[in-house]
Design a protein around this nucleic acid. Sequence first.
DNA 1: GTAGGTGCAAAAGATTTGCAGAAAG
DNA 2: CTTTCTGCAAATCTTTTGCACCTAC
Lengths: 139, 139
Amino acid sequence: MRMTRQRKLILDELCKAKSHPTADEVYKLVRPRMPRISLGTVYRNLDQLSASGQIVKLTMGGGPMRFDSTFPQHHHIRCSKCGKVDDIISGPNIKIGQEMVNESGYELVGYKIEFHGLCPRCRKRNGNKEGKPQSSARN
Amino acid sequence: MRMTRQRKLILDELCKAKSHPTADEVYKLVRPRMPRISLGTVYRNLDQLSASGQIVKLTMGGGPMRFDSTFPQHHHIRCSKCGKVDDIISGPNIKIGQEMVNESGYELVGYKIEFHGLCPRCRKRNGNKEGKPQSSARN
DNA sequence: GTAGGTGCAAAAGATTTGCAGAAAG
DNA sequence: CTTTCTGCAAATCTTTTGCACCTAC
């Protein structure tokens, strides 16, 4: 994979971004520094960067694809009410290894955990200031 | 939520399906039994059924949305090479609780684990018959 | 009876692709 | 040099929506 000016730029903007931009947002982030770049190029690069593991594709259930740099390692949580996506800098130990998928015959390469819940703002609006889970923690 | 003939039918076909059909595939599954149903209706119902937790939306990084019934509880693994999606009837205990997301201020409602790796067929083609992970298990 | 649901068709969005010229290695 | 990548624009694919008519409750 060649490291073109475009690819470097896209990766750079993605690392700087605190949010989880869509392809179109990446396009807008990059244009000021390279006005003639095309949206198609952005899509092609986002695909390749994620195929090579340098970034992650996030779908988080609905709407256009979002992208995020992989470092530092983290997971994501999405508000079921307003759709906001935040990072979870997972401290604790989720041990996930080959043995979890052995029965399937697959060779495990990676995994992704996507949480969903209510963001602080929506909790307040709901009048549920303290953490009283209202449903069991499973999808 | 009313239980219309359409909704019942869609849910029924989805429970029977061993695969993870796209909206369009669900449409095709349902049409033999209800020829005048519209694709729009299928989309609207899949959305509502997943909002109410009766089915799950799977995005699995790329392509159109896929849908799956929620029982029995399971996760999914997707082949990074050919795109095949299979079920992981997770035996072991992944303990994920509110404490994992406390710092974020969110109230945890649920989570979803998506694995990816090489399916048995692609492993063979790769000449890697036994489980020798080639990269670290992370995205 | 009425709020929510449906079919149809068109619109809106998101992503992919063909091609000729550019540029990385 | 050769191979991969780019810009552009058109094509394709997916999903959403407006509207008038239905139907579950």
